[in-house]
Computed example of a mutant assay.
Amino acid sequence: MDAIEMYINELMEKSTPDCPAWNIEKLLLGEKSDWNYIDGCMIKAILEMYAITKDSRYFEFADAFIDHRVREDGTIDGYDVNELNIDNINAGKTLFELYDLTGKEKYRKAIDLIYSQIGMMPRTEEGNFWHKNIYPNQVWLDGLYMCQPFYMEYETRFHEKKNCGDIYSQFANVKQCMSDSETGLYYHAYDSKREMFWCDKVTGLSQNFWLRALGWYSMALLDTMDKADSSDVAEVSNMKEAFLGLINAMLKYQDESGMWYQVVNLGGMDKNYLETSGSAIFSYAILKGVRLGYLPESYAQYGKKAFLGICDRYLHLEEGNMSLGGICLVAGLGGQNRRNGTFDYYMSEPIVKDDAKGVGPFLLAYTEMVRTGWTYLS
């Protein structure tokens, strides 16, 4: 077992479904964990570890974690469909895999329950889901990852592709409304009504290019394409073009360390820092994109460089245990804290270690590195 697998096993040993060691937001608040995208990211990564190692510990941990939340009738402890929070769909992706592995009917029922939220989500005038009911008329890049891969898998597996056109349309709208023609990057969020204090009153866009949001979007494109039906040739080709364009844009800003900065295009600015979660996401997205044929083989070097850069800078021993640092805890727009999306705002959010928003993508990137034959020798 290499050092990274030891690190993941340490986190698993310290975690319970109600108190996972990687959910730093809940730990800082002293709250019990519930159904949330953070745990969903981590369990998805643990299932990916099972897929490549066939070590039953990973499967058993993931199954026990999700089983603890899902009741026999398919309802989920800590999940309310009527909250209309797009983030809460993300953890549903684990249910497809666990249903296939276990055959538990309650997982199939829970999949249907989460899918029912999609039909209830309010939409912008362009047709995209609001990020949350409490953020009316707003599309955030994060939300594409939280919903669309689940949405696509449901449509192709259980719904005869009836709403796949809706999925492709939402991605097309994001490219049209949220991309920047000069840099090729995408802004964090868009207010279709141009009413929020953080948006440009002409374009509706927020001010900056936040690394992790761009990362979530890259994974949204990649993982949705991965679940799409191969017969949707033109639609998938458009998504592939958007994915390649985003990766090409990001490579222009890749630091010599292999990582990317918290605010991507302002690497020389005081306080800006090389951030782990977004860098790990792009490592994963590039390596998986190459493996699936969406990117040229030559791009693998950039994904590997990002992963090794994270290891060099932020993965180290602390009191005898491995720890992963450099993770932005959270960033958003609006809300009770009046988050305004300025450069100073993105610099003000806490930087933490061992949070699943960094550890999950790092572990996903690790599984892609292992698929290339790489081993961690430190």
Score class of each variant (00 low, 15 high):
Thr183His: 00
Asp232Tyr: 08
Leu214Ile: 10
Ala172Asn: 14
Leu251Val: 03
Cys164Gln: 10
Asn238Trp: 07
Met196Ile: 04
Asp191Cys: 01
Ser237Leu: 10
Gln176Ser: 15
Met178Val: 05
Leu221Tyr: 03
Ile247Gly: 00
Trp198Leu: 00
Leu211Glu: 01
Glu241Gln: 13
Gly204His: 05
Ser179Lys: 13
Glu256Cys: 10
Asp223Pro: 05
Lys252Gly: 06
Ser206Lys: 07
Leu211Arg: 10
Val264Ser: 06
Val174Gln: 10
Leu246Gln: 08
Cys199Gly: 00
Phe197Cys: 13
Lys175Gly: 14
Lys193Arg: 12
Gly258Pro: 00
His188Cys: 03
Lys193Asp: 11
Asp223Ala: 07
Thr183Pro: 01
Lys227Leu: 10
Val233Leu: 12
Gly258Trp: 02
Glu195Ile: 07
Met250His: 01
Ala234Ser: 13
Lys193Tyr: 15
Tyr186Lys: 03
Leu251Glu: 02
His188Glu: 01
Leu214Glu: 14
Asn173Leu: 11
Ser237Val: 06
Met250Trp: 01
Asp229Pro: 02
Glu182Asn: 11
Tyr261Gln: 04
Tyr186Gly: 02
Ser206Cys: 09
Lys175Glu: 15
Gln262Pro: 01
Asp200Val: 00
Asp255Glu: 04
Ser192Thr: 05
Glu241Tyr: 09
Lys240Leu: 10
Tyr253Cys: 00
Lys227Ala: 12
Leu214Met: 12
Thr203Glu: 01
Ala234Cys: 13
Tyr187Asp: 02
Met219Pro: 06
Ser206Pro: 03
Lys161Ser: 13
Leu211Trp: 03
Val263Thr: 11
Leu205Phe: 11
Ala249Arg: 00
Ser181Glu: 14
Glu182His: 06
Leu214Gly: 11
Ala242Asp: 14
Leu222Arg: 03
Tyr190Gln: 05
Glu195Asn: 03
Asp200Pro: 00
Gln176Glu: 15
Arg194Val: 05
Ser179Phe: 04
Ser218Trp: 10
Leu185Tyr: 01
Tyr168Cys: 06
Val233Met: 12
Gly184Tyr: 06
Asn265Val: 06
Glu241Leu: 13
Leu185Glu: 03
Asp229Glu: 12
Lys201Pro: 11
Ser218Lys: 14
Leu244Cys: 09
Glu235Ala: 15
